[in-house]
Amino acid sequence: MHWTTSTLVALAFASPISALIRFQCSQLVVERLDPLVTPGQVPSPHVHQIVGGNSFNATMAPSKDMPGESTCTTCQFSEDFSNYWTAILYFRARNGTYKRVPQRSNAGFDGTTGGGMTVYYMTDPLYDSQPKSKVSAFKPGFRMFVGDINARTKEQAARFRQLTYTCMENAGSREHEVVHFPQKPCSYGIMTSVRFPTCWDGVNLDSPDHMAHMSYPESGTFESAGPCPSTHPVRVSQVLFEVIWDTSKFNDPADWPEDGSQPFVWSFGDPTGYANHADYVFGWKDDSLQKILDTSCYATSCGGKQQSIAEMNKCAGLKKTVDEDIGEDTWLTQLPGGHAAE
């Protein structure tokens, strides 16, 4: 389920919902680093876009003091030094070359460097008029991953139906989500939405696959308001990313494959969209997140220390560790890392 900004505001004032934090983060850096899945590997296998605290680097051990080591953050809440990242989207032209797809800022966040992403932390489904959830903030050292980078079919991606795409006709489009790339040109762009699990085992800050310590509710999705399984009894907030890819620049049918199939591909070579995935490393300062989650608030009315878009943008542009052409201004014969659409 998706909600427009106007719907979110209306619901916030219509019922005493619990905390729903919604904020924007400017793009910190775009490069081949992945300290969660391939820590210390320079470069990592594929390109990511990263937002958040500027202490992001190739290793980021669990003991890392992210608030202490970061000097700024690209996120609107200035005490949020977490890092959030996703793969990068590319357009594959009819001649087989690739070009990076730029991003758009979400509605109300114009001017955000690189388009960035919108981040949500939610304690209850929006339509729950009797919120009763007490959720725990994540702990220092916590991290998680969601998705399957190897999925290429609906069946393989079935356990991650909370990762979706919306073909946007305008800035307010939020309907008709699908779990694969849209199969037609989208006049405004494609929004990817990533919803992380909301039940924690209460013990482990991470796990070998970065997923086993987390679970979705027994009834499948956060929106179902179902109970957590006994193996993962601690309720945490729903973390949601929204990224808008400005695919409008690539809507000329003459550039699409001759058979009419969709031309977009993830930076690791997935042309189906089923392998959508994302990473999260917690880094809020002290108990700043817990204080917000314990209130009844909406979006940027949730208190905390906040900064302007101009201040967020000052933190953007982290010096890259990997020096390579990622197809921002040029056409590539192959994706960075040697990947090809498959």
Results as ranks from 00 to 15, higher is better:
Thr300Lys: 01
Glu31Cys: 07
Arg159Val: 10
Asp209Phe: 12
Ser308Val: 00
Gln24Arg: 08
Ala137Pro: 00
Leu28Arg: 08
Thr321Ile: 12
Gly111Glu: 04
Gly172Gln: 07
Val29Gly: 11
Leu318Ser: 03
Asp270Ile: 06
Met1Asn: 13
Trp284Leu: 03
Gly260Glu: 11
Ala310Gly: 11
Asn83Ala: 09
Ser55Pro: 02
Phe91Leu: 04
Gly116Glu: 07
Pro229Trp: 02
Thr300Cys: 08
Leu8Thr: 06
His210Trp: 13
Gly40Ile: 12
Thr221Trp: 13
Val146Pro: 04
Phe13Thr: 13
Ala87Asn: 14
Arg94Trp: 08
Ile309Cys: 04
Gly189Gln: 02
Ser230Gly: 05
His176Ser: 11
Pro140Asp: 00
Leu33Cys: 06
Val243Leu: 11
Gln156Pro: 14
Tyr165Ser: 01
Tyr84Phe: 15
Ala87Cys: 10
Val37Gln: 04
Asn150Leu: 10
Val265Ser: 09
Ala278Thr: 03
Gly141Thr: 01
Tyr98Gly: 11
Ser173Cys: 15
Met66Gly: 13
Pro271Trp: 05
Pro257Cys: 10
Pro45Val: 02
Ser82Met: 15
Met60Cys: 03
Pro185Arg: 10
Ser26Gln: 06
Glu258Phe: 08
Glu169Gln: 11
Leu335Ser: 15
Met60Ile: 04
Glu311Thr: 11
Pro253Phe: 14
Ser288Gln: 01
Gly220Tyr: 10
Pro208Trp: 12
Asp323Lys: 13
Ala275Arg: 01
Lys285Arg: 07
Asp124Thr: 10
Gln156Glu: 12
Arg92Gly: 15
Leu293Arg: 14
His277Trp: 06
Val37Tyr: 13
Gly68Phe: 07
Thr118Phe: 00
Pro197Glu: 01
Asp329Pro: 12
Leu126Gln: 10
Asp279Met: 10
Phe77Gly: 10
Tyr84Ser: 03
Arg32Cys: 09
Ala341Asn: 13
Phe23Cys: 10
Glu169Pro: 04
Pro271Gly: 11
Cys199Asn: 02
Asn106Leu: 12
Ile244Gln: 01
Pro125Trp: 15
Pro253Asp: 05
Arg100Met: 14
Ser215Arg: 14
Phe181Arg: 04
Ala107Phe: 05
His2Arg: 09
Glu324Tyr: 07
Glu169Tyr: 14
Thr59Trp: 13
Lys134Pro: 12
Trp331His: 13
Val135Met: 00
Val243Gly: 02
Trp200Asp: 00
Gly96Thr: 05
Leu11Cys: 01
Ala107Ile: 13
Arg161Asp: 12
Lys184Arg: 05
Gly303Asn: 09
Phe268Trp: 13
His180Tyr: 11
Trp266Ile: 05
Ala341Glu: 14
Ser105Ala: 08
Val42Cys: 14
Ser105Met: 11
Tyr165Pro: 02
Gln162Pro: 05
Gly273Phe: 05
Phe109Leu: 11
Met211Trp: 09
Gly202Leu: 00
Phe81Ala: 12
Leu318Ala: 15
Glu242Thr: 02
Ser105His: 00
Phe77Trp: 07
Asn276Ser: 15
Gln24His: 05
Glu311Ser: 08
Phe145Val: 01
Gln24Tyr: 11
Lys132Gly: 05
Asn106Gln: 04
Leu89Glu: 08
Arg143Phe: 04
His213Asp: 01
Ser133Val: 05
Asn54Tyr: 06
Glu155Ser: 10
Val203Pro: 09
Phe56Gln: 03
Trp85Met: 03
Asn251Leu: 10
Asp329Ile: 03
Leu11Lys: 04
Tyr188Met: 02
Gly304Arg: 04
Val234Tyr: 02
Thr192Phe: 14
Ser6Glu: 08
Met117Tyr: 07
